[in-house]
Amino acid sequence: MDASDSTPESGAGRIDTDSTYYELYQKSVELGTWDAEKLVEKVGFEEDREVWESLADDEKEQWARVISYFIDGEHAVAQDARRIMTTVSTPWFDRSIEKEMFASALALEEAKHTQFFDLYLSNVMIDKFPQYELDTRRGGVQIPRTDACGAGKMFDRQGTLQAQAAHGGDPVDIARAATNYHIGVEGILARGGYFAKNRMMQEAPLTLLNKGFQFISTDEGRHITFGLELLEELIEKERQGVPEYQGVQNAIWEQAVEDIGYITDTGYFITGDIGDPLGVDFDDLVNRGARLAGDMLFDTLDIDNAQPRDYMQAAADAMEEARDNDYGEVIEKYDHIYEQKKQAAGD
């Protein structure tokens, strides 16, 4: 229960217990090993089912849009975790077991997040997800709602970037992948989602879902810190003038700008596009996202040559597309594709 209390006495062997990565790992052991099944058992589905059933269809739809991108996002990350483990063990980082130890904890946690959402969605929200059960690795696709918005594209991009980074990628590739995942997906898209769920919980208090989100966001906080530490290492080497690391900050900024387009689209998809029945408020969501991005990119990483107006422009471009987008039609299209895949898988 209180494992790290014994650290000073047990001393350090080959593991550097002073490393931030070790601390993150240790905190994962202490805080991240919650049991999703036990959580579900302890809190139970009943109260949430009751609230869910009392919701109007558009309110259910708003939750469904948020949860779709969470479950597909967690699923995508669980798949990519093995690539992150490979990437952090490459010689581009000062080789150390501590990063791999943390990455292994991250892999477990992402799998557990997928497990929690899988349990929740199947037991509470299933009426909104007739097309859900097909694993993307067994010939399936993302949930149609995820595919219809920027998040779906972002997760596809994440897979490509993580693969490039893990399989012979250089520091610039690694910086792109880490920015996309730790800053974009976890740092803004997911945290924007928590912001949204906090607002939605006021109107529709789904207790078990809230508890799950609290554990998940606690785990994600460590993942984000881990990602920022990795990026700081790469930036440090670039600033020292190590030739192979030149271009790292530029890649971080370019990726962040690309990702804010996907994120803005998703933000609109879960709020303005459906009339925001549970009162998230798109304006507040945008402001929160901007702050989260600013904290990470400017305060923590302090990247050089960033042009904040590029960031706003990318969000503006995404918003322009979003306004003209008929998401319902896109969801229907993906529904159709999903149905075909399901039949094919069943055959």
């Binding site: 919980m201 609290q214 810190t225």
Partner: peptide, 14 residues
């Protein structure tokens, strides 16, 4: 997460 700032949206506003 050890960073010195409140950044856990999921808990902080929960």
């Amino acid at each position: 997460s050890g960073s010195g700032r409140v950044n856990n949206e999921g808990v902080a506003g929960a």
